[in-house]
Design a binder for these strands. Structure first.
Length: 866
RNA sequence: GCCGAAGUGGCGGAAUUGGCAGACGCGCGCGACUCAAAAUCGCGUUCCUUCGGGAGUGAGGGUUCGAUUCCCUCCUUCGGCACCA
């Protein structure tokens, strides 16, 4: 053997091709109405300093897919940029004395280099960097647009504050049971601050509609739950002094069972309604609740606390006077901050009523028909059990008591028998679907109203000493363990004990009552959301300044368009004081009012960085455009984003904000279309080899640069596609990458080594099976790119490679062989572009770039030749 | 507690309009090449087996000629929400 073909040396070929692609501007996306467009987008990185293997995992398959679509003939735009504002820059500045700007831009320079080593087809001409003044000018402009249209407002309220990051956080940035900061894991505290909010709640209903977009079920569910729409009614109760107290309820059909009210301790009416006798207790309770942090509230569990404020309200459906309490299980931030308590059909209210001895009245029939009766020893005369048995009513003895679960059809019969057998001076009862107390023959009492319940309780207390300690009838029944599962339920069912509405079936009850309330003028249908408005003020330096000026005469004035951007000053102290660094600047905040030219002050907070990332996909369209946030011509051609990929951890943050922005801008006439991203796919996460999240402190971080040096970018790319289900991710596998490396070497050998000697006979069957597997691979690879199943793309390519290997001796001289090798290279090109390009060129193919070759299909077409 | 997703060899993972379970890769075993090793190549590799077979996709049940795939119950893991009226 004298003529050894050159070995596969990725370090020699990869950089060469990257430079050539760049030089020829191969991946510059230009508007071309003749071709179908495809906007492929992957979530922009934060310039933390080093490209992480996680970036590779997220971006490589996206890039491969974009390259695939390009080969299919689409005009593909695949842009990249940096989400460059944010806390890490400032923290690095504090720790190392580097200016956040310098830190950020040098990181960006480094990451650009690293990103290029991936061999991705990014259009660097479209790069956008969110901390560039030309970028944040338009972030500010969008803010002023929202302000002018009443969608941005300032409000003093208790907000979540991270004591480590020294700034406020949006609600969705507070995570976990201990309510910690999403970024640094420090538990948050509450502060009362005057802050800017965006009215995202105005778009709640629209954000619930995912029609026409192809997003993962999981993200849609997360967003739906986060928005948390509940439909019901708002009902007005009146205090003795006729103050209206509004409550929100999803169960207007239970109004007749509202036996008390609960207001949030912070409810504005509390001070006014509290009677003098209760003032001290109420003040003490409020003080205690305010002192407690949310975490302590959580720690105290669900044990209900509360206090009676001395006042009563009138239930609008029956005029009943019901006591008003305050309790911290009612949240001032949800609904109206006040509830009607229906203890018989709401678990929390039930618990509260039981604890504080408040009355309970069942008003909804049990749909499951569960009916129970329990007669302690000595309650019934002998023969009772036998009489029941004769009726086929099954009972069991529990601690001497005769406990029966009565079939619905036998309830009436049971009552008759019990009447006959109850001992004089004793009683028994039937509960569940019926609430009837049996004192003797011809002597039963039905619990169908609050007063009736009181009377029954009084009778029982006369007969039975232990009952005298019970404050309510329900408390008496709760003492019987056997009854517990039948005393409370929250199902829909026929209305009972509800005046004229008694008997209304569960299916229609809610609507009938709501309609009636509306006629009476004491209620209306209402919808409440869990979603809160988006708090965007941050008390940090490295962010977009809020373009608002406070004028003593004119109030809040947005900075006019021609004065944007409000530049971030560079000469600041960024010590973490808890105040905005911009506030401490000697003169930055001093300005003049854009309206009246009198001295005025700038807002010294900066914006949540999620604002920057809510519209970056629009800036990519035309990052240098000066007459607006983007060039409308580019928008018209490229939008919406056809495929958006990134982590699912952004489901309730970035991915909801960006939809909100899009809809706002649409309503302002700036954009069009319902949604910004037509299709979304989430990738999973790469963990350390130990199965733990990669982190420097654990020492399990995989450095992509080192892997590229060792194996080459193509191997790393193909391994990341091959080793995992993309949606799942998993631990970095140190072993599997060797297999991918071997595969590329085998491909190299196949394409470069001399074939069988001239004149070697071809086995027709083998040539045919080579052709068959070639076409099967084309189909498999195409289908799997469409469905983001990247691991099976690589395995299909390996299968084809193995077949080539095996059939070389017998089919290596056939046309099918040449077609198969060329097809393999083309099918590999999206995943492993450098080696494919190199071998393509080495084979003397006339088309200069493999990617220019048209689509591969399974449709009949001549064997591909280069 | 509520909602959602997922459980397949020693490992990563294939296969679902219901049709040969374990593709592809790792690892492992045997062999070739080599003085030797690495690399490479070839063969084998779900488990049990008395070598005839038998069992097998988290567990149990059901539908079916046939179930990893569909239905019911349960278990485990992960993610989200959690006093949201």
């Amino acid at each position: 053997m004298t003529n050894h073909p050159p070995r596969y040396t990725p370090e020699q070929i990869e950089q060469r091709w990257q430079e050539r692609w760049e030089l020829d501007g191969l991946y510059r996306a230009k508007i071309d109405p003749a071709r179908p467009k495809y906007y492929a987008l992957t979530m922009l990185p934060y310039p933390s300093g080093d490209l992480h293997i996680g970036h590779w995992y997220a971006m490589t398959p996206s890039d491969a897919r974009a390259r695939y679509l390009r080969m299919r003939g689409y005009n593909v735009m695949y842009p990249i940029g940096f989400d460059a504002f944010g806390l890490p820059a400032e923290n690095a500045a504090i720790q190392r004395g580097i200016h956040p700007k310098q830190w950020t831009y040098s990181n960006i320079a480094n990451m650009r280099k690293q990103l290029r080593s991936m061999g991705a087809m990014w259009d660097w001409d479209r790069e956008a960097v969110s901390c560039d003044p030309e970028y944040y000018k338009w972030t500010q402009w969008i803010f002023t647009q929202l302000f002018k249209h009443g969608l941005a407002y300032k409000k003093l309220s208790p907000v979540d504050w991270c004591p480590n990051c020294n700034t406020t956080l949006a609600r969705e940035q507070v995570w976990g049971d201990d309510r910690h900061c999403e970024r640094c894991k420090t538990p948050v505290i509450k502060k009362n601050l005057n802050q800017w909010y965006f009215r995202i709640t105005k778009y709640a209903d629209e954000l619930l509609n995912f029609e026409g977009i192809d997003w993962p079920e999981r993200v849609r569910t997360l967003q739906t739950n986060w928005i948390g729409r509940s439909a019901g009614a708002q009902v007005t109760f009146l205090s003795a002094a006729a103050d209206p107290i509004e409550v929100f309820t999803t169960r207007p059909d239970t109004l007749w069972g509202a036996t008390f009210m609960v207001l949030a301790p912070e409810h504005p009416l509390v001070a006014k309604l509290t009677t003098p006798a209760q003032t001290a207790a109420v003040d003490a309770y409020i003080a205690e609740v305010t002192r407690r942090t949310d975490i302590e509230r959580e720690a105290t569990g669900k044990d209900k606390t509360g206090v009676f404020i001395g006042a009563f309200a009138t239930n609008p459906v029956n005029g009943a006077q019901i006591p008003i309490w305050i309790a911290d299980y009612v949240l001032v931030t949800y609904g109206t901050g006040a509830i009607m308590a229906v203890p018989a059909h709401d678990e929390r209210d039930f618990e509260f009523a039981l604890k504080f001895g408040l009355p309970i009245l069942p008003v909804i029939d049990r749909p499951d028909g569960l009916t129970k009766s329990c007669a302690p020893a000595g309650t019934m005369q002998p023969g009772f059990a036998a009489a029941l048995r004769a009726e086929n009513i099954a009972c069991e003895e529990l601690d001497g008591a005769l406990c029966c679960t009565i079939p619905p059809s036998k309830v009436a019969r049971y009552v008759e028998i019990a009447q006959r057998f109850v001992q004089p001076g004793k009683w028994t009862e039937v509960i569940g679907t019926r609430w009837e107390f049996i004192f003797g023959p011809q002597d039963t009492a039905v619990w169908n109203s609050q007063p009736a319940g009181q009377e029954i309780l009084a009778r029982c207390q006369q007969l039975d000493a232990p009952a005298r300690s019970k404050r309510t009838l329900m408390e008496l029944l709760w003492a019987v363990e056997f009854y517990r599962d039948a005393l409370y339920h929250s199902e829909y069912g026929a209305m009972i004990n509800s005046g004229d509405f008694t008997g209304t079936p569960g299916a229609t009850a809610k609507n009938k009552v709501t309609d009636w309330l509306q006629q009476q003028g004491s209620g209306k249908t209402a919808v409440t959301y869990r979603l809160r408005d988006w708090l965007i003020s941050r008390q940090r330096y490295w962010g977009t300044p809020i373009p608002i000026v406070y004028c003593p005469a004119c109030g809040q004035v947005p900075v006019p368009d021609d004065q944007l951007p409000v530049q971030l000053p560079e000469d600041v102290e960024w010590k973490p004081t808890g105040e905005s660094p911009l506030k401490l600047h000697p003169n930055w905040s001093n300005t003049t009012c854009p309206k009246c030219s009198q001295p005025a002050q700038r807002d010294t907070d900066t914006m949540d960085t999620f604002m920057c990332s809510s519209w970056y996909h629009l800036r990519y369209l035309s990052p240098k455009f000066a007459d607006g946030p983007f060039d409308p011509r580019e928008f018209a051609y490229w939008m919406p984003v056809d495929s958006y990929t990134g982590g699912a951890e952004h489901a309730t943050m970035h991915l909801i904000y960006t939809r909100f922005f899009h809809k706002v801008l649409r309503d302002l006439g700036i954009t069009s279309g319902e949604e910004p991203m037509a299709q979304l796919r989430n990738q999973g996460q790469i963990l350390g080899p130990d199965g733990q999240r990669m982190s420097k402190s654990r020492g399990n971080v995989i450095d992509p640069d080192a892997q590229v040096r060792k194996y080459g970018a193509d191997t790393v790319r193909a391994f990341l596609m091959f080793g995992y289900r993309w949606v799942d991710g998993g631990p970095w596998g140190t072993d599997n990458i060797e297999g991918v490396s071997r595969w590329l070497n085998r491909v190299w050998a196949l394409a470069t080594e001399a074939g069988p000697a001239a004149g070697t006979k071809t086995d027709a069957d083998d040539a045919r099976s080579l052709q068959r597997i070639t076409h099967q691979t084309i189909k498999k690879v195409s289908d799997d790119y469409e469905s983001y199943e990247f691991n099976t793309i690589i395995s299909a390519l390996m299968v084809l490679t193995n077949a080539l290997h095996k059939l070389r001796a017998t089919a290596g001289a056939s046309p099918a062989w040449e077609a198969a090798v060329n097809t393999l290279l083309k099918l590999m090109a999206p995943a492993t572009p450098h080696i494919a390009e190199e071998l393509w060129a080495q084979r003397g193919c006339r088309t200069p770039y493999i990617r220019k070759h048209g689509r591969n299909t399974t449709q009949r077409q001549p064997p591909m030749r280069c």
